[in-house]
Design a protein around this nucleic acid. Sequence first.
DNA 1: GTAGATAGTGATTGGCCACTAACTTTGTCG
DNA 2: CGACAAAGTTAGTGGCCAATCACTATCTAC
Lengths: 189, 189
Amino acid sequence: MVRMSAEERRESVIRAAITEFSRGGYNGTSTEAIAKRVGVSQPYLFRLFPGKQAIFLAAAQRCCQDITKVFQRASEGAEGEEAVQCMGDAYQALIAEDPEKLLMQMQIYVAVAAAEAVGDREFGESLRAAWMEMYDVVGLATGADAGETTWFLAYGMLINVLVSMGFKQDHRVWVGFHEATQSQEADKE
Amino acid sequence: MVRMSAEERRESVIRAAITEFSRGGYNGTSTEAIAKRVGVSQPYLFRLFPGKQAIFLAAAQRCCQDITKVFQRASEGAEGEEAVQCMGDAYQALIAEDPEKLLMQMQIYVAVAAAEAVGDREFGESLRAAWMEMYDVVGLATGADAGETTWFLAYGMLINVLVSMGFKQDHRVWVGFHEATQSQEADKE
DNA sequence: GTAGATAGTGATTGGCCACTAACTTTGTCG
DNA sequence: CGACAAAGTTAGTGGCCAATCACTATCTAC
């Protein structure tokens, strides 16, 4: 058993929480499962965080930040359509190497809806703010073209959904997506 | 207390389940809550359905069918871009009058991911089939243009996400969406 | 009316889970 | 060393929840 500072532990908890919550969702994930993955006793989580929701929130914010950073780095130095292309490539790479971030996104969306349904306003507010950062980074890259930003995010959301639903790469639902990529490339010429 | 045939009761259960599951998701919804909404005792649900998952599955399939029908009716008699326009209008109307169908979609996506994660293959298979019916109806309306079908669904998915996240109608995330609608109308002229 | 089927309930149970309280171990510094 | 703090654990509690069992009420057809 390795001893760590509370701050380092919180870090590992957040990483473990992303993995677990992305699979099971908020209600389908026990704090026990997270603790096991961290390699720490379950009650100790409540020393590091005030409660389960706080763990989810931290994991969700981290996840949004990570994706935001991916877009930020990918679009650095580029502008307009070229930047969009770079971000698209970066997102596809992210799917391949880190699918849990993508699933976590979906979990965030339904968690906000659930929180809102029971009158918990603050939770959703925090996550909308995190999401807006991502939105604005994409917006900046497209040269503040709201239509193009929306287009980009829409395709991203469809990808999230298709991956969540478990459609394999060679399934026909992906065909239209490839066409779109090609036609976008065709536009550039 | 009204007596009903088992078949009628199952119907009410499905409707109630859509409402409850759309808010709380699979794990966040108790069978008790569904039973209360139906106006029936909780154990009786297990006479009508073999288990909780079967209730969710029935609700999910019904939800997909309903949306499929909305697209089918909206696109009847039209073709190509006109049909797409009609379906888009129909979807917006659906959001306004029946937002739970939209939230339920999101719940389906994460439920499939969760089932797949624990090795339950059959559950996801059923729901992918239901989803593909909707895909094909949209595909048919666009004249089997996979790119356009994908484009249409992508915007639909982004709408689902933005609504789930609780962004109000006048929030700036919706701006790009309006622009896209306008530019699509401009394309037609 | 009574027999069989169909619709429905009350009570219960075993398991899980978020969270608490009280205690132990390990590092650090004068 | 000894004392204080920070990291971490074990044991336990109260509440919820899916599912079962045994039972009751109502309808239908002879």
